[in-house]
Design a protein around this nucleic acid. Structure first.
Lengths: 192, 192
DNA sequence: TACAATGTTGATTATCAATTCAATGAATCG
DNA sequence: CGATTCATTGAATTGATAATCAACATTGTA
């Protein structure tokens, strides 16, 4: 790969990083292409040389998120409670380690819930249902006595929403202390 | 109060309700005045007869939020753990009972964290620091043995972010089941 | 009833931001 | 060294939307 292609790739990444950061702080609609261009230090025209539209740039980020950070959520054959412990731990670890990943989490959940993101992005996110598999896992955990009683779906909501809320807070305020993943798990763990 | 003033007040409330609903789904920037007008069933021009600008409309909502729903958060002279139990319970109760209040919670936290909201709104929200008083309360609870060990600030983050994440989920999806407030408190409660 | 005040509309304007484009400069390749 | 291709810019275009406004309708009142 020549110097030129390297440069191009680097530039693309700079745009993505700047875009991610601005999108999560201001939202898709309020983020101006000129904001991103300025942050990267390039002209607006040039940015369109790298991404054909604001929407495509956003799409590229979401695609990155789907293939990368979100894949930690894939349920395995672990014991139910262990899955929740591991997942929370892993997510919190990433969030503290890698600001890009932290921000990516926020972007994904914003994109998921915000009705203003373009339909093409909604499509990408289709089939990103973490609740169905997790609810099943919770039921299993209740059966084997490791997870507390209660509506399994509601327990899943509590778990994921807590993680999401914390991820958002930390991504936007990197200087606040990170809660421990155990605390989260204690919401759903059966007491001895 | 004449029929006319009543009507006017009612109309104002309709606008506020529609605006709140759209703002939390799409964000401030992506919500068009024409969306709100259409939802209420009035012309755009008329909406400007009731609120002089989009920003003022948003301001009115935030002001409502500050004086109303958010006041449940005011710390009292309760025992620390009891405060957290009561508050979570109360918030969850409101969220399930009154969709307007639920949505208001979401609006407030969105406004708080989103950099795209106008500065005039940021000012309104200044001094809305729930973390400092809560962190103090947590320390007190740790001293009297009712709250678990760990960084008090991080515990406060966990508590509030979990509540905020859940509130957001429920406001946007009124049909999902509501977690129990006790589960949240279990994050910070000292185990027996 | 007729006047005054307020409600209501649709068209109009002004602004702002995404996108396009023609022109310029720099790197690469034969 | 040319010549070709890619990087880069700033200005022009276009589309969208907040806000204004003049005209018309309705209500309340003397």
């Amino acid at each position: 790969m020549g110097v030129r292609e390297e440069q191009k790739e680097k530039r693309r990444e700079e745009i993505l990083t700047a875009g991610l950061n601005l999108f999560i702080r201001k939202g898709y609609a309020a983020t101006k292409i000129s904001d991103i261009a300025e942050r990267v230090g390039m002209s607006v025209g040039l940015l369109f040389h790298y991404f054909e539209s604001k929407e495509k740039l956003y799409e590229a980020l979401i695609a990155l998120g789907i293939s990368g950070p979100m894949s930690v959520i894939a349920p395995t054959d672990m014991e139910p409670l262990e899955f929740f412990e591991r997942t929370a731990e892993q997510i919190f670890h990433y969030i503290q380690t890698d600001p890009f990943v932290a921000q990516m989490f926020v972007l994904m959940s914003q994109a998921f819930y915000n009705e203003a993101v373009p339909p093409s992005i909604k499509e990408l996110l289709m089939g990103f249902d973490i609740y169905t598999p997790t609810t099943l896992l919770i039921q299993k955990g209740q059966a084997d006595g490791t997870i507390r009683e209660g509506d399994p779906y509601a327990l899943a909501i509590a778990y994921w929403c807590a993680i999401q809320g914390i991820a958002e807070q930390l991504a936007l305020n990197p200087d606040v202390p990170c809660p421990e993943s155990d605390w989260i798990v204690d919401m759903i763990r059966r007491k001895a």
